[in-house]
């Protein structure tokens, strides 16, 4: 009996090991139903404005419902190239949009609907007195950056290059929210993030602006996808996002509008 139990525990453990081993990936919210539902894949940095846009849009179009799945733009792009059934893709940069526009995956033109700029994120009260990019090279500072392939990590390195600086990172985070949370939790003394992500963080951080000369602007493109079942709804949503009401919402969350 005990032996059996032991063996069973071993098996259970084996299952858990293999299940937990590769966590961290999310799947697309692919909805099959056509007609009334518009399925959107959107960059994680769009979470707050797109939730507001969703509410406002469905108020104006009561016959439609909108379902948004948020994730890093690169993860969403690979979901699309692997056949995710969605109507609209909103990316945080052109590089990830370019991954889906090559073939016959998109229906319609790619349009830029917002812009984001970089900022230095520091703990509330700015205890290390950081005023500009150059201050990040100070001895003993722990800096949180995005990993080089992540848009915010790539942009930060471009900014450093423009300013002629070498800033060593303490950690290379997989997405911009993680960059900010390192600072919010006090593990990092500063980081480089998009303005909107710093503003969206409720506690523990504030932003230090980066002058235009050293800043990097990221264009946010949007496109209708060919695999979607609700082309009409998708077009209406994209039009709404580019209209004054949509742009007002985006501006409220710190985006620069078109």
């Amino acid at each position: 009996m005990r032996r059996a139990l032991l063996r069973w525990t071993g098996l259970m453990a084996l299952v858990v090991v293999s299940a937990v081993g590769a966590s961290g990936c999310s799947s697309a919210g692919a909805g099959g139903a056509g007609g009334t539902k518009v399925t959107v894949l959107a960059a994680a940095s769009l979470t707050e404005p797109f939730n507001a846009i969703k509410d406002e849009f469905t108020k104006q179009h009561p016959a439609l419902t909108v379902e948004v799945s948020y994730g890093s733009s690169s993860a969403l792009a690979s979901q699309i190239t692997n056949g995710a059934e969605a109507d609209v893709f909103a990316s945080a940069d052109q590089a990830n949009m370019a991954k889906v526009t090559g073939g016959d995956l998109v229906a319609g033109a790619v349009e830029v609907f917002a812009r984001n700029t970089m900022a230095i994120v520091v703990p509330t009260g700015n205890p290390r007195g950081i005023r500009e990019l150059k201050d990040l090279t100070g001895a003993g500072l722990r800096i949180s950056l995005g990993a080089p392939p992540v848009p915010v990590g790539k942009a930060a390195r471009e900014g450093f290059a423009k300013a002629g600086l070498r800033v060593p990172a303490a950690t290379e985070e997989p997405d911009v929210k993680a960059v900010v949370s390192r600072v919010a939790l006090g593990e990092a003394d500063a980081g480089i993030a998009w303005v909107t992500d710093v503003r969206a963080t409720k506690q523990g951080v504030e932003l230090v602006e980066i002058p235009a000369g050293h800043n990097v602007v990221s264009d946010y493109p949007i496109v209708r996808l060919a695999a979607g079942k609700n082309g009409h709804g998708a077009t209406a949503l994209i039009e709404f996002i580019r209209s004054k009401s949509g742009q007002d919402i985006l501006r409220r969350y710190g985006f620069q509008t078109i």
């Binding site: 937990v20 081993g21 590769a22 966590s23 961290g24 949180s144 990993a147 990172a169 303490a170 950690t171 290379e172 985070e173 997989p174 390192r182 593990e187």
Partner: peptide, 11 residues
């Protein structure tokens, strides 16, 4: 994966 990237970061 999870505890490591959360606690120790990624460098």
């Amino acid at each position: 994966f999870g505890a490591t990237i959360t606690f120790a970061g990624n460098f």
